[in-house]
């Protein structure tokens, strides 16, 4: 598994043949730098329980967790729970996008509205979504609706706030320049405001993507009969400790994948941006 991770970046890129060896070594070095801490952690996870420093029952070695994960996958449990979680978080996340982006664009454009609404939105954002989960459960029941609603709530505010600030902070000179070319308000919005605000909007989209998973897992632990959060909780209650860790790892990996996908989308849409570093 670890070997596969190291090899991947080498295949992905590589344009012309000149200095190929140098590039390969540079990539290998980077791959090593990126993975060494994780590998050390996993090694420690494997060794420490076996030496008896911690209780093997509560903290099984990594290989056992991998075995349990494989077992869950073969039984099909993992797929079911993953599908349940993904359906909820994707629905909530997409709904939040559908609501927040048009709304944010409108509020950001209308500066007075933004000034009045911003403190309220900040307040809502800083109200931890989980703190109002009981409210959602009371109002919407234990079913899918309350879970999608909590994801929607958690994703909505980062999206909304970043879209508003993206629109508000568009360089006024660009607006002036476009206006001097006689652009109508509609095309000004479409051709200048939206593309200029896109990078900031993406900050919100990535925050929302991350929180849509975090919040959902926690919500599933409280009241659900499926999903990764439920899997973890259920495994703990049933004393299936390796399975519990397998669920936790699945969530971590899922989070990384989601972030990576959103980052890739962002790079694609804003490839004009000056990139620092890498």
């Amino acid at each position: 598994m670890a070997e596969g991770n190291v090899a991947k970046p080498l295949i992905l890129q590589g344009r012309n043949a000149g200095g190929a060896l140098e590039r390969v070594t540079a990539k290998a070095r980077r791959a090593f730098r990126n993975s060494v801490a994780i590998l050390l952690f996993l090694t420690a996870w494997e060794i420490v329980p076996r030496t008896g420093i911690v209780n093997v029952t509560f903290f099984p070695p990594f290989s056992e967790v991998v075995n349990a994960w494989w077992g869950l996958l073969r039984a099909g449990d993992l797929q079911d729970h993953l599908a349940a979680s993904l359906t909820r978080s994707i629905s909530g996340f997409l709904l939040a996008n559908l609501i927040a982006i048009p709304l944010g664009l409108a509020i950001g454009w209308w500066k007075t509205a933004a000034d009045y609404l911003n403190p309220f939105l900040e307040l809502m954002r800083n109200t931890a979504a989980l703190a109002i989960l009981p409210v959602f459960i009371l109002l919407l029941g234990l079913g899918e609706t309350s879970k999608i609603a909590i994801v929607l709530y958690a994703s909505l505010f980062p999206l909304l706030l970043n879209t508003i600030s993206g629109v508000k902070n568009v360089d006024p000179l660009l607006v002036k320049s476009a206006r001097s070319m006689g652009l109508s308000s509609v095309s000004l919005f479409r051709k200048v405001i939206v593309p200029a605000a896109l990078p900031t909007m993406f900050v919100g989209i990535r925050q929302a993507g991350a929180s849509s998973i975090l919040v959902l897992v926690a919500a599933e632990m409280v009241g659900a009969t499926s999903g990764l959060g439920y899997l973890i909780q259920y495994a703990q209650f049933s004393f299936l400790i390796p399975q519990m860790y397998a669920g936790i790892i699945t969530i971590s990996v899922l989070g990384i994948i989601v972030n990576y996908l959103l980052l890739a989308l962002e790079r694609r849409l804003t490839d004009w941006k000056q990139t620092y570093g890498e």
Partner: peptide, 12 residues
Amino acid sequence: GIVFQQYALFPW
């Protein structure tokens, strides 16, 4: 047509 001091090119 206007030419501004700070260019005002669309960065995207």
